[in-house]
Simulated scan of single mutants.
Amino acid sequence: MKQKSLRKFLFFNFLIMAVFNFAHPVTPRLINELELPSYMFGLFFALMSIGSYIFSPIWGSLSDYKGRKRFLMIGVLGYGTAQLGFGLSQSAALISAFRVLGGVLSVSYIAVVMACISDLSSPENRAKSLAYLAATTAMGSAVGSNIGGWLGATNYKYSFIVQFAACIAITVALFFLTNETLEKKKEGKAVLALNHLKLKKSSLDFKSILGALILTVAFMNITTTSYNSTIGYFVESDLKLPTQLNGLILSIVPICAVLVNFLVNPRLAAKYDELKTLIVVIALTGGSLFIWAYSSNLIVMGIFLVIFFIVMPLAQPIYQSMISKHAKDNAGEIMGIQNSARSVGMVIGSLMAGFLYDFGSKLPFLVGSVMALIACLILILQYRREKKTSA
Protein backbone atom coordinates (compact mmCIF):
# COMPACT_ATOMS: atom_id res chain seq x y z
CA MET A 1 0.00 0.00 0.00
CA LYS A 2 2.80 2.39 0.90
CA GLN A 3 4.62 1.61 -2.34
CA LYS A 4 1.50 2.47 -4.35
CA SER A 5 1.11 5.77 -2.47
CA LEU A 6 4.80 6.51 -2.94
CA ARG A 7 4.53 6.07 -6.71
CA LYS A 8 1.43 8.27 -6.75
CA PHE A 9 3.19 11.09 -4.89
CA LEU A 10 6.23 10.85 -7.16
CA PHE A 11 3.94 11.16 -10.20
CA PHE A 12 2.19 14.17 -8.68
CA ASN A 13 5.57 15.69 -7.89
CA PHE A 14 6.52 15.40 -11.56
CA LEU A 15 3.31 17.18 -12.62
CA ILE A 16 3.61 19.89 -9.98
CA MET A 17 7.27 20.63 -10.72
CA ALA A 18 6.43 20.89 -14.42
CA VAL A 19 3.70 23.44 -13.70
CA PHE A 20 5.85 25.33 -11.18
CA ASN A 21 8.44 25.87 -13.95
CA PHE A 22 6.13 27.20 -16.67
CA ALA A 23 7.08 30.83 -15.99
CA HIS A 24 10.85 30.52 -15.57
CA PRO A 25 11.80 30.85 -19.28
CA VAL A 26 9.64 33.95 -19.76
CA THR A 27 10.64 35.85 -16.59
CA PRO A 28 13.63 37.51 -18.34
CA ARG A 29 11.24 38.71 -21.07
CA LEU A 30 8.92 40.16 -18.40
CA ILE A 31 11.86 42.10 -16.94
CA ASN A 32 12.97 43.36 -20.35
CA GLU A 33 9.50 44.28 -21.64
CA LEU A 34 8.69 46.21 -18.45
CA GLU A 35 12.11 47.92 -18.82
CA LEU A 36 13.22 46.97 -15.33
CA PRO A 37 16.94 47.11 -14.40
CA SER A 38 18.96 43.92 -14.90
CA TYR A 39 19.57 43.36 -11.19
CA MET A 40 15.82 42.78 -10.72
CA PHE A 41 16.16 39.16 -11.88
CA GLY A 42 18.27 38.54 -8.78
CA LEU A 43 16.06 40.64 -6.51
CA PHE A 44 12.85 38.87 -7.55
CA PHE A 45 14.46 35.48 -6.92
CA ALA A 46 15.75 36.67 -3.54
CA LEU A 47 12.34 37.96 -2.42
CA MET A 48 10.76 34.62 -3.16
CA SER A 49 13.56 32.90 -1.24
CA ILE A 50 13.01 35.17 1.78
CA GLY A 51 9.37 34.10 1.94
CA SER A 52 10.50 30.50 1.62
CA TYR A 53 13.09 30.88 4.40
CA ILE A 54 10.59 32.33 6.87
CA PHE A 55 7.80 29.82 6.28
CA SER A 56 9.54 26.56 5.43
CA PRO A 57 10.00 25.29 9.03
CA ILE A 58 6.58 26.73 9.95
CA TRP A 59 4.74 24.69 7.31
CA GLY A 60 6.90 21.67 8.12
CA SER A 61 6.22 21.79 11.86
CA LEU A 62 2.49 22.36 11.31
CA SER A 63 2.37 19.27 9.10
CA ASP A 64 3.80 17.20 11.98
CA TYR A 65 0.68 18.12 13.99
CA LYS A 66 -2.02 18.53 11.35
CA GLY A 67 -0.98 16.06 8.65
CA ARG A 68 0.70 16.56 5.28
CA LYS A 69 -2.05 16.59 2.66
CA ARG A 70 -3.65 19.97 3.38
CA PHE A 71 -0.27 21.71 3.20
CA LEU A 72 0.55 20.15 -0.15
CA MET A 73 -2.71 21.60 -1.48
CA ILE A 74 -2.09 25.03 0.08
CA GLY A 75 1.33 25.10 -1.59
CA VAL A 76 0.12 24.24 -5.08
CA LEU A 77 -2.96 26.48 -5.16
CA GLY A 78 -1.19 29.32 -3.35
CA TYR A 79 1.79 29.33 -5.69
CA GLY A 80 -0.45 29.34 -8.76
CA THR A 81 -2.36 32.35 -7.42
CA ALA A 82 0.83 34.24 -6.56
CA GLN A 83 2.26 33.51 -10.00
CA LEU A 84 -0.83 34.89 -11.72
CA GLY A 85 -0.39 38.14 -9.79
CA PHE A 86 3.32 38.18 -10.62
CA GLY A 87 2.78 37.68 -14.35
CA LEU A 88 -0.03 40.23 -14.75
CA SER A 89 1.50 42.99 -12.61
CA GLN A 90 3.08 46.02 -14.26
CA SER A 91 5.04 47.63 -11.42
CA ALA A 92 8.19 46.45 -9.67
CA ALA A 93 6.62 47.00 -6.23
CA LEU A 94 3.58 44.81 -6.95
CA ILE A 95 5.70 42.13 -8.61
CA SER A 96 7.96 42.12 -5.56
CA ALA A 97 4.99 41.60 -3.23
CA PHE A 98 3.78 38.63 -5.28
CA ARG A 99 7.31 37.18 -5.32
CA VAL A 100 7.38 37.14 -1.52
CA LEU A 101 3.89 35.59 -1.44
CA GLY A 102 4.99 32.97 -3.98
CA GLY A 103 7.88 31.96 -1.72
CA VAL A 104 5.65 31.79 1.37
CA LEU A 105 3.08 29.54 -0.30
CA SER A 106 5.12 27.36 -2.66
CA VAL A 107 7.36 26.17 0.16
CA SER A 108 4.31 24.66 1.86
CA TYR A 109 4.44 22.05 -0.89
CA ILE A 110 8.22 21.83 -1.31
CA ALA A 111 9.05 21.29 2.37
CA VAL A 112 6.14 18.94 3.12
CA VAL A 113 6.49 16.66 0.08
CA MET A 114 9.95 15.59 1.35
CA ALA A 115 8.34 14.66 4.67
CA CYS A 116 5.66 12.70 2.75
CA ILE A 117 8.31 10.66 0.96
CA SER A 118 10.04 9.99 4.29
CA ASP A 119 6.69 8.87 5.78
CA LEU A 120 6.20 6.36 2.97
CA SER A 121 9.76 4.98 2.92
CA SER A 122 11.50 2.47 5.16
CA PRO A 123 14.83 3.63 6.64
CA GLU A 124 16.80 1.36 4.27
CA ASN A 125 14.91 2.59 1.17
CA ARG A 126 14.72 6.27 2.11
CA ALA A 127 17.82 7.32 0.16
CA LYS A 128 16.49 5.65 -2.99
CA SER A 129 13.02 7.21 -2.55
CA LEU A 130 14.49 10.69 -2.08
CA ALA A 131 16.67 10.17 -5.14
CA TYR A 132 13.50 9.38 -7.10
CA LEU A 133 11.89 12.50 -5.66
CA ALA A 134 14.85 14.56 -6.90
CA ALA A 135 14.62 12.82 -10.28
CA THR A 136 10.90 13.54 -10.73
CA THR A 137 11.53 17.12 -9.61
CA ALA A 138 14.22 17.47 -12.27
CA MET A 139 12.15 15.74 -14.94
CA GLY A 140 9.18 17.97 -14.22
CA SER A 141 11.38 21.08 -14.25
CA ALA A 142 12.77 20.12 -17.68
CA VAL A 143 9.33 19.48 -19.16
CA GLY A 144 7.85 22.60 -17.56
CA SER A 145 10.65 24.87 -18.80
CA ASN A 146 10.11 23.68 -22.37
CA ILE A 147 6.32 24.02 -22.20
CA GLY A 148 6.59 27.46 -20.60
CA GLY A 149 9.00 28.68 -23.28
CA TRP A 150 6.54 27.74 -26.02
CA LEU A 151 3.49 29.07 -24.17
CA GLY A 152 5.13 32.48 -23.74
CA ALA A 153 6.66 32.74 -27.21
CA THR A 154 4.14 35.36 -28.38
CA ASN A 155 3.10 36.80 -25.01
CA TYR A 156 4.81 35.99 -21.71
CA LYS A 157 1.50 36.36 -19.82
CA TYR A 158 0.13 33.17 -21.40
CA SER A 159 2.63 31.09 -19.41
CA PHE A 160 1.41 32.58 -16.12
CA ILE A 161 -2.29 32.18 -16.97
CA VAL A 162 -1.92 28.52 -17.95
CA GLN A 163 0.21 27.95 -14.84
CA PHE A 164 -2.58 29.26 -12.61
CA ALA A 165 -5.24 27.10 -14.30
CA ALA A 166 -3.04 23.99 -14.01
CA CYS A 167 -2.44 24.62 -10.29
CA ILE A 168 -6.19 24.70 -9.68
CA ALA A 169 -6.64 21.39 -11.52
CA ILE A 170 -3.80 19.69 -9.63
CA THR A 171 -5.09 20.92 -6.25
CA VAL A 172 -8.45 19.29 -6.98
CA ALA A 173 -6.69 16.08 -8.04
CA LEU A 174 -4.62 16.04 -4.82
CA PHE A 175 -7.81 16.33 -2.76
CA PHE A 176 -9.58 13.41 -4.44
CA LEU A 177 -6.70 11.09 -5.39
CA THR A 178 -4.24 11.13 -2.47
CA ASN A 179 -4.34 9.98 1.15
CA GLU A 180 -2.72 11.32 4.29
CA THR A 181 0.81 9.92 4.70
CA LEU A 182 1.43 10.76 8.37
CA GLU A 183 0.27 7.78 10.41
CA LYS A 184 0.89 9.27 13.85
CA LYS A 185 0.47 13.01 14.29
CA LYS A 186 2.10 14.90 17.12
CA GLU A 187 -0.27 15.33 20.04
CA GLY A 188 -1.20 18.54 21.79
CA LYS A 189 -1.38 22.10 20.58
CA ALA A 190 0.63 22.80 17.42
CA VAL A 191 3.96 24.49 18.11
CA LEU A 192 5.35 26.61 15.30
CA ALA A 193 9.04 26.24 14.46
CA LEU A 194 10.27 29.82 14.85
CA ASN A 195 13.80 29.37 16.16
CA HIS A 196 15.24 30.32 12.76
CA LEU A 197 13.68 33.81 13.19
CA LYS A 198 15.05 34.48 16.67
CA LEU A 199 18.22 36.50 17.11
CA LYS A 200 19.94 34.02 19.39
CA LYS A 201 22.54 31.32 19.16
CA SER A 202 21.33 28.50 16.94
CA SER A 203 20.14 25.30 18.59
CA LEU A 204 22.11 23.42 15.93
CA ASP A 205 25.65 22.36 16.81
CA PHE A 206 27.62 23.27 13.71
CA LYS A 207 30.40 20.94 14.83
CA SER A 208 28.00 18.01 14.49
CA ILE A 209 27.38 16.19 11.23
CA LEU A 210 23.81 17.55 11.07
CA GLY A 211 25.02 21.10 11.66
CA ALA A 212 27.70 20.79 8.97
CA LEU A 213 25.17 19.42 6.51
CA ILE A 214 22.68 22.24 7.15
CA LEU A 215 25.46 24.85 6.86
CA THR A 216 26.77 23.49 3.58
CA VAL A 217 23.25 23.19 2.17
CA ALA A 218 23.20 27.00 2.36
CA PHE A 219 26.59 27.30 0.61
CA MET A 220 25.60 24.86 -2.12
CA ASN A 221 22.39 26.74 -2.78
CA ILE A 222 24.40 29.93 -3.27
CA THR A 223 26.19 27.98 -6.02
CA THR A 224 23.12 26.50 -7.68
CA THR A 225 21.13 29.74 -7.40
CA SER A 226 23.99 31.77 -8.87
CA TYR A 227 23.78 29.47 -11.88
CA ASN A 228 20.01 29.00 -12.07
CA SER A 229 19.03 32.63 -11.54
CA THR A 230 21.64 33.93 -14.01
CA ILE A 231 21.56 31.46 -16.88
CA GLY A 232 18.09 32.43 -18.14
CA TYR A 233 18.92 36.14 -18.19
CA PHE A 234 22.35 35.37 -19.68
CA VAL A 235 20.71 33.44 -22.53
CA GLU A 236 18.01 36.09 -23.12
CA SER A 237 20.12 39.24 -22.79
CA ASP A 238 23.67 38.22 -23.76
CA LEU A 239 23.06 35.44 -26.26
CA LYS A 240 19.79 37.02 -27.59
CA LEU A 241 18.03 33.66 -27.94
CA PRO A 242 14.19 33.31 -28.11
CA THR A 243 12.12 31.98 -25.20
CA GLN A 244 11.72 28.56 -26.83
CA LEU A 245 15.51 28.06 -26.85
CA ASN A 246 15.75 29.61 -23.40
CA GLY A 247 13.33 26.97 -22.14
CA LEU A 248 15.36 24.24 -23.84
CA ILE A 249 18.62 25.45 -22.28
CA LEU A 250 17.02 25.78 -18.85
CA SER A 251 15.93 22.15 -19.14
CA ILE A 252 19.44 20.73 -19.72
CA VAL A 253 20.37 20.53 -16.03
CA PRO A 254 17.02 18.94 -15.04
CA ILE A 255 17.37 16.37 -17.82
CA CYS A 256 20.84 15.48 -16.54
CA ALA A 257 19.37 15.33 -13.03
CA VAL A 258 16.77 12.82 -14.19
CA LEU A 259 19.42 10.55 -15.63
CA VAL A 260 21.86 10.69 -12.71
CA ASN A 261 19.17 10.39 -10.04
CA PHE A 262 17.60 7.35 -11.65
CA LEU A 263 20.79 5.67 -12.85
CA VAL A 264 23.63 6.86 -10.62
CA ASN A 265 22.39 8.00 -7.20
CA PRO A 266 20.72 4.73 -6.10
CA ARG A 267 23.96 2.86 -6.88
CA LEU A 268 26.08 5.42 -5.03
CA ALA A 269 23.78 5.16 -2.01
CA ALA A 270 24.07 1.37 -1.99
CA LYS A 271 27.84 1.07 -2.44
CA TYR A 272 29.63 4.09 -0.97
CA ASP A 273 29.85 6.13 2.22
CA GLU A 274 27.44 9.05 1.84
CA LEU A 275 29.67 11.72 3.37
CA LYS A 276 32.70 10.83 1.23
CA THR A 277 30.49 10.68 -1.87
CA LEU A 278 29.02 14.10 -1.07
CA ILE A 279 32.51 15.62 -0.69
CA VAL A 280 33.59 14.32 -4.10
CA VAL A 281 30.35 15.49 -5.76
CA ILE A 282 30.66 19.01 -4.32
CA ALA A 283 34.34 19.27 -5.28
CA LEU A 284 33.50 18.32 -8.87
CA THR A 285 30.56 20.75 -8.94
CA GLY A 286 32.61 23.74 -7.78
CA GLY A 287 35.68 22.88 -9.82
CA SER A 288 33.84 22.27 -13.10
CA LEU A 289 31.76 25.46 -12.80
CA PHE A 290 34.90 27.50 -12.08
CA ILE A 291 36.81 26.13 -15.08
CA TRP A 292 33.79 26.60 -17.39
CA ALA A 293 33.35 30.24 -16.35
CA TYR A 294 37.07 31.07 -16.30
CA SER A 295 38.21 29.33 -19.49
CA SER A 296 38.00 30.86 -22.98
CA ASN A 297 38.80 27.59 -24.79
CA LEU A 298 35.56 26.25 -26.29
CA ILE A 299 36.56 22.57 -25.98
CA VAL A 300 37.59 22.96 -22.32
CA MET A 301 34.41 24.93 -21.61
CA GLY A 302 32.28 22.24 -23.22
CA ILE A 303 33.92 19.37 -21.32
CA PHE A 304 33.61 21.00 -17.91
CA LEU A 305 30.09 22.27 -18.56
CA VAL A 306 29.04 18.66 -19.23
CA ILE A 307 30.76 17.56 -15.99
CA PHE A 308 28.92 20.32 -14.12
CA PHE A 309 25.56 19.26 -15.59
CA ILE A 310 26.19 15.64 -14.52
CA VAL A 311 27.47 16.15 -10.97
CA MET A 312 25.41 19.11 -9.75
CA PRO A 313 22.12 17.16 -9.36
CA LEU A 314 23.80 14.38 -7.35
CA ALA A 315 24.18 16.41 -4.15
CA GLN A 316 20.54 17.12 -3.26
CA PRO A 317 19.27 13.56 -2.67
CA ILE A 318 22.42 12.70 -0.69
CA TYR A 319 21.77 15.72 1.53
CA GLN A 320 18.12 14.77 1.94
CA SER A 321 18.99 11.19 2.84
CA MET A 322 21.65 12.12 5.41
CA ILE A 323 19.53 14.83 7.04
CA SER A 324 16.39 12.66 7.13
CA LYS A 325 18.30 10.01 9.11
CA HIS A 326 18.48 12.50 11.99
CA ALA A 327 14.70 13.00 11.98
CA LYS A 328 12.79 11.07 14.63
CA ASP A 329 9.26 12.30 15.32
CA ASN A 330 9.82 15.71 13.73
CA ALA A 331 10.64 14.93 10.11
CA GLY A 332 8.53 17.86 8.91
CA GLU A 333 10.42 20.33 11.11
CA ILE A 334 13.86 19.02 10.16
CA MET A 335 13.03 19.08 6.45
CA GLY A 336 11.74 22.60 7.00
CA ILE A 337 15.04 23.64 8.61
CA GLN A 338 16.89 22.15 5.65
CA ASN A 339 14.65 24.10 3.29
CA SER A 340 15.33 27.29 5.26
CA ALA A 341 19.06 26.72 4.79
CA ARG A 342 18.36 26.31 1.07
CA SER A 343 16.39 29.54 1.12
CA VAL A 344 19.20 31.47 2.81
CA GLY A 345 21.54 30.27 0.08
CA MET A 346 19.01 31.21 -2.56
CA VAL A 347 18.60 34.74 -1.15
CA ILE A 348 22.35 35.34 -1.01
CA GLY A 349 22.98 33.65 -4.36
CA SER A 350 20.28 35.50 -6.26
CA LEU A 351 21.12 38.95 -4.85
CA MET A 352 24.81 38.37 -5.42
CA ALA A 353 24.20 37.20 -8.98
CA GLY A 354 21.91 40.12 -9.78
CA PHE A 355 24.36 42.79 -8.66
CA LEU A 356 27.55 41.07 -9.89
CA TYR A 357 26.11 40.59 -13.38
CA ASP A 358 26.59 44.25 -14.29
CA PHE A 359 30.32 43.94 -13.55
CA GLY A 360 30.72 40.81 -15.64
CA SER A 361 28.19 38.32 -16.98
CA LYS A 362 30.25 35.33 -15.78
CA LEU A 363 31.06 36.68 -12.32
CA PRO A 364 27.99 35.04 -10.70
CA PHE A 365 29.19 31.65 -11.96
CA LEU A 366 32.75 32.19 -10.70
CA VAL A 367 31.69 33.30 -7.21
CA GLY A 368 29.16 30.46 -7.06
CA SER A 369 31.91 27.95 -7.76
CA VAL A 370 33.99 29.36 -4.88
CA MET A 371 31.02 28.85 -2.51
CA ALA A 372 30.87 25.16 -3.48
CA LEU A 373 34.57 24.74 -2.78
CA ILE A 374 34.10 26.33 0.67
CA ALA A 375 31.28 23.83 1.35
CA CYS A 376 33.61 21.03 0.28
CA LEU A 377 36.28 22.22 2.74
CA ILE A 378 33.73 22.34 5.61
CA LEU A 379 32.66 18.75 4.92
CA ILE A 380 36.27 17.54 4.67
CA LEU A 381 36.95 19.02 8.12
CA GLN A 382 33.76 17.36 9.43
CA TYR A 383 34.79 14.01 7.95
CA ARG A 384 38.15 14.23 9.71
CA ARG A 385 36.39 15.18 12.96
CA GLU A 386 34.08 12.17 12.64
CA LYS A 387 37.02 9.83 12.03
CA LYS A 388 38.84 11.19 15.07
CA THR A 389 35.74 10.71 17.26
CA SER A 390 35.18 7.13 16.11
CA ALA A 391 38.87 6.16 16.41
Results as ranks from 00 to 15, higher is better:
residue 290 F to R: 00
residue 290 F to Q: 02
residue 290 F to M: 02
residue 291 I to F: 06
residue 292 W to M: 10
residue 292 W to S: 10
residue 293 A to P: 00
residue 293 A to R: 01
residue 293 A to M: 02
residue 294 Y to V: 08
residue 294 Y to N: 13
residue 294 Y to Q: 14
residue 294 Y to P: 08
residue 295 S to T: 06
residue 295 S to M: 02
residue 295 S to G: 04
residue 295 S to E: 14
residue 295 S to R: 08
residue 296 S to E: 14
residue 296 S to Y: 12
residue 296 S to D: 12
residue 296 S to W: 03
residue 297 N to L: 12
residue 297 N to S: 09
residue 298 L to E: 07
residue 298 L to V: 14
residue 298 L to T: 08
residue 299 I to T: 11
residue 299 I to W: 11
residue 299 I to Q: 04
residue 300 V to H: 08
residue 300 V to L: 15
residue 301 M to L: 12
residue 301 M to P: 05
residue 301 M to F: 06
residue 302 G to Y: 09
residue 302 G to N: 05
residue 302 G to C: 13
residue 302 G to S: 12
residue 304 F to N: 10
residue 304 F to S: 02
residue 304 F to K: 00
residue 305 L to Y: 15
residue 305 L to N: 13
residue 305 L to I: 09
residue 305 L to E: 14
residue 305 L to A: 10
residue 306 V to L: 15
residue 306 V to M: 15
residue 307 I to D: 03
residue 307 I to G: 04
residue 307 I to P: 08
residue 307 I to Q: 11
residue 308 F to E: 06
residue 308 F to C: 02
residue 308 F to Q: 02
residue 308 F to M: 10
residue 309 F to K: 02
residue 309 F to R: 11
residue 310 I to T: 15
residue 310 I to L: 15
residue 311 V to W: 10
residue 311 V to T: 11
residue 311 V to K: 11
residue 311 V to D: 07
residue 312 M to Q: 14
residue 312 M to L: 15
residue 312 M to G: 03
residue 312 M to V: 13
residue 312 M to P: 10
residue 313 P to N: 09
residue 313 P to V: 01
residue 313 P to I: 12
residue 314 L to A: 08
residue 314 L to F: 05
residue 315 A to W: 06
residue 315 A to T: 11
residue 315 A to S: 15
residue 316 Q to P: 06
residue 316 Q to V: 14
residue 317 P to W: 03
residue 317 P to Y: 05
residue 317 P to V: 07
residue 318 I to H: 07
residue 318 I to R: 10
residue 318 I to V: 10
residue 318 I to A: 14
residue 318 I to T: 13
residue 319 Y to L: 11
residue 320 Q to N: 05
residue 320 Q to T: 01
residue 321 S to M: 08
residue 321 S to H: 12
residue 321 S to L: 10
residue 321 S to Q: 07
residue 321 S to V: 00
residue 322 M to W: 00
residue 323 I to L: 05
residue 323 I to S: 13
residue 323 I to E: 04
residue 323 I to Q: 01
residue 324 S to P: 04
residue 324 S to T: 02
residue 324 S to L: 03
residue 326 H to M: 13
residue 326 H to I: 06
residue 326 H to E: 08
residue 327 A to P: 03
residue 327 A to K: 00
residue 327 A to I: 05
residue 328 K to V: 03
residue 329 D to W: 02
residue 329 D to H: 07
residue 329 D to R: 01
residue 330 N to L: 01
residue 330 N to I: 04
residue 331 A to T: 12
residue 331 A to P: 00
residue 331 A to G: 01
residue 331 A to Y: 05
residue 331 A to K: 13
residue 332 G to Q: 09
residue 332 G to P: 12
residue 333 E to K: 07
residue 333 E to W: 05
residue 333 E to I: 05
residue 333 E to P: 11
residue 334 I to C: 01
residue 334 I to Y: 03
residue 334 I to A: 00
residue 334 I to L: 12
residue 335 M to N: 09
residue 335 M to A: 01
residue 336 G to E: 06
residue 336 G to K: 04
residue 336 G to R: 04
residue 337 I to Y: 10
residue 337 I to H: 07
residue 337 I to V: 13
residue 337 I to T: 10
residue 337 I to A: 09
residue 338 Q to N: 15
residue 339 N to F: 04
residue 339 N to L: 11
residue 339 N to E: 11
